[in-house]
Each structure stands twice: as C-alpha cells, then as structure tokens.
Design a protein around this nucleic acid. Structure first.
Lengths: 239, 239
DNA sequence: CGCGGTGTTGAGACCTGTCAAGACGTGTGG
DNA sequence: CCACACGTCTTGACAGGTCTCAACACCGCG
C-alpha cells in the first residue's frame, strides 16, 4: 500500500524491517478523492499528514486577484504535507489535480516515530528537505529560466521522479495537468504555455496528447532546461 | 552567542535548559567571514552546518549564462544550511552578502540531538520547514507578483524576521544588499529594480539610502506586497 | 586624486500578457 | 443516436512590462 513511499526511501537509505513496520502502522485510514478537490485549505489546523498512494496533488497559493501559483506537484509515494506535522497548518492549499488515493497519518504517530525511531525520523526530515530543494529549483525556473526552459525543466523533473517510483513507460508517462495548470506551475499564462508547448513539439523534444507525455529527446530537452537532477538527491546515503 | 537562535526558537516553543545546553554544546567553532565570500559551494560534501550569529548570507543558484537566483536570505539567528545535515551536500552556493560571524555545528552532534532530544530535533525540523514555506512564498512572488509587489514583499518579510531577533530600530534596519543582489532575489534585472525602488520611494512607502532601509508606511507597503506573515509561523506552538 | 563598484537614466527591442473568438472533444441528457 | 454544453486547446492582434545596451553620475576607498 505504501510501497511507493518505501521504494522512494530505500533508494536513498536503508529502512529496517522495524522501521517499515512503524511506517505501515502509522497509517490511520485510506481514502479515494476525485480530481479538482481541495484536501487541505491554507491555515486549517491539522492532525494528520497525507501520504499520496496514487494520483496527483498540487500545493497551490493565490493572490487577491485570483491568480494562482502552484509551488509543488506531488506524485505517488510523496508525503504531500509532511511539513504540516511540525508547522501545524499549511501556508498553501493542497488540491487534487487527478483522481487520487491517499493515506492519512496522524501526527501523534509521527511524533512517536521521532521518539522511537530517530533514524526513520531523520529520513522523513530528509524528504521534507528534498521538497525544499525542489522549491529552490523551481525558484530558479521562475526567476531566471525562459518559458521554454521552465516547461522543459518541469518535464525533466517529473520524468525522473516518476521513474523513481516506476510510473514511467519507456519515455512516456501519464500527465494529467491541463495547460492552465501547467501555467500555474511555471508562472506564465495558459496562452503562452500553449505557444511554448507548440515550440517544444516543433523542435521534436516532446509529444503531449490525451494526457500522455512522451519525451522524444532527453538530451536536448535537458539541455534546453539546463536540468541537473542533483537537487533531487537520488544517491544512496547514510542519514 | 547563539542567543538569537534561541530567541527565534523560544518565540515558537518551549526550549528546556537541557535542550539549550545541548544546542550550545553543539557549536564546534566560531568564525568571522568578510562580505562576498563563498562559505559552501554547491555539491561540496558537508560535515558541519552553519549557524549565522551575525551578518547576512544568501543561498544562490546559477544558470550556464552566469545569471544567478538567490533563493533565500539569512539573517542573524538563522541556521543557514541545517538542511545540509540530512542532504549531505547543498544544491546551491552559500555566500556572504555582508561581513558575518558564523558558528559551525558538526553533523554528528545534530544526529545526537535527534537521538537524545527528540523534541529539540523536531524544533530544528520545524525551522527547515519554515525555510521551505518561505521558498514557497518567494515562488509566489517570482511567478505571480508584479515588480513592485516582489520588492515590497521582500522588505515586509525582512522587517518581520529582523524584528523577531531584535535587529530593527523603529521602522528601520540595516540592509546591506546592492540593487544587483536585490535583483537576484526577485528575478528581475538590476536596472528594473532601480526603477521599481524609485517608484516605491515616490509613493512614500520606503526610504533606502546608505544601506539603511526605512519602511515609511507599513500598511500600504503590505498592501502592495499582499503580505501576510502567516507563512513565517510566528505563533507559539507545541511541537 | 583616481579607480572600481554601485546607482541612474534613456531609447528601443522583445518577450509575455490581454482580450477575444473559434475549434475541438468528451460526456450528458433527451 | 443525436444535440448540446462545457472545459480545454488554439489562434490572432495588440498592449505593456521588463530587458538590453549604453552612457554617465556618484561615492567610498586606497
């Protein structure tokens, strides 16, 4: 059930049988959620964190004029609002961008993990730090990359992350986001995203139709994006 | 010595005498560093984390064409690269933007804290999560706020954070960044930052000269910025 | 006193946004 | 099965914010 999460953790460090049991035992409940639902609203007091078993979630922040910015995307295996454990409430909405299956993990069980399984606690801390590193890479995109680069970079990142949890098929993967949602990730308008996608297609870098994305030329796409997966911290380590 | 860090933690939660002693005992060495030095280079393996006792640091990422993006600013009391503890290396450079005094905290002593003082460990985890929340707010700026809004928001944030560690004088504080460095924070060019600053001055919102920033009208500056300090998690809590 | 970094200003180019309309496609109800 | 409606994608014309390039002013410091 939480196999993808374990897969992700075990790519980075050893997870003992006892730690695995603690993590499995921490799940309180599993739920299915439709697309375009709001799981957690900004500021709402929290007692659980959400582990994404399948589907896509987004962290979304808005401005008064209604314009939104997606600050992170979550895929299967991600602990979508683990930071809510120490923060107590979120500074963003947590919404589904595709039908999803989630597991609820009570904060008191997370606290128990930090007390009884400090190594597992550090590993969870590590994952929130990777989230932050990803935020920084997105900041670099938003602040300095061209429209082409931003979208190319998003696609490169998602390919690597999905491959990590075995959700790619060759050079393709399911990609549920509308062009409007992409625009909220990369800080552009949907009209400009549309034109940029056409440009990437024209250059033979990607194919995107019927919610399936295919990367036709990884090398050149990474070049356009200046993509370097170091910020995803994929190596084995001892935390 | 680490008084500012303790001040910051105690505004959020109780820190026991034993925890305070553990934190003080974790410092290995104190150093003075000049401005515009590189403390940690991207990718460099780390054995210590840096606690900023005084001065200003920046997390800086670059693209191939030399353009840079500052993804975070650190002031006195900040644990500038605490995330390096679980990550092992940084995805960005850590540089001084003003003369600074830093304390080095070995990672093995941080690990010991997570084992012997789990509550203090969670509190440190909390601070990295606030860093991440700040990244998200910057993403919102970079992606969706106007030039005026971005710079106004930066000033509002810094005022609140500096006030927390008692580094403001009335409505003023020392602000060492050049316009070029501001431009690297807000994802604009220094020319445009110059024009935007003039606009903010013309509107009577701020004064900025001789490296001192004065906020002349907090209400209107916050309005321009759409600033809401909730993302800084300033309330008392029990972690 | 001169130098280098920083701040300021102007003109023009360019990227991205805005507004608006129409095409496409898929699901629903008649 | 068809008609319709709604969301999404696409396209065009134009506006506007930001960038680029360049020159000059200012100022602290050696």
């Amino acid at each position: 059930m939480i196999e993808a999460q374990l897969l992700r953790l075990r790519r980075r460090d050893v997870v003992s049988a006892a730690e695995e049991a603690a993590l499995r035992g921490a799940v309180r409940e599993v739920r299915e959620i439709a697309a375009d639902a709001c799981l957690v609203r900004e500021g709402q007091p929290l007692k659980d964190s959400i582990l994404l078993l399948d589907g896509w979630l987004a962290r979304s922040k808005g401005l008064a004029n209604g314009v939104r910015q997606i600050t992170a995307l979550h895929i299967c295996g991600d602990f979508a609002d683990l930071h809510g454990f120490t923060l107590g409430y979120l500074d963003h909405d947590l919404v589904t961008v595709a039908p999803s299956r989630i597991a609820l993990v009570p904060h008191d069980r997370l606290q128990a993990i930090t007390e009884k399984f400090p190594h597992l606690g550090r590993l969870l801390w590590f994952t929130t730090n990777v989230d932050a590193a990803t935020h920084r890479e997105w900041s670099l995109s938003l602040g300095r990359r061209s429209a082409n680069g931003r979208i190319a970079h998003l696609f490169c990142e998602l390919f690597v992350r999905l491959a990590l949890v075995e959700r790619t098929r060759g050079d393709s993967f399911d990609f549920p986001l509308t062009q409007d949602e992409i625009s909220c990730c990369v800080g552009l308008t949907s009209v400009h995203v549309n034109r940029t996608l056409q440009e990437l297609r024209r250059q033979g870098l990607i194919q995107l139709e019927r919610r399936e994305l295919t990367i036709l030329d990884h090398g050149r796409l990474r070049q356009v994006a200046e993509f370097d997966p170091a910020y995803l911290y994929l190596e084995k380590r001892k935390i």
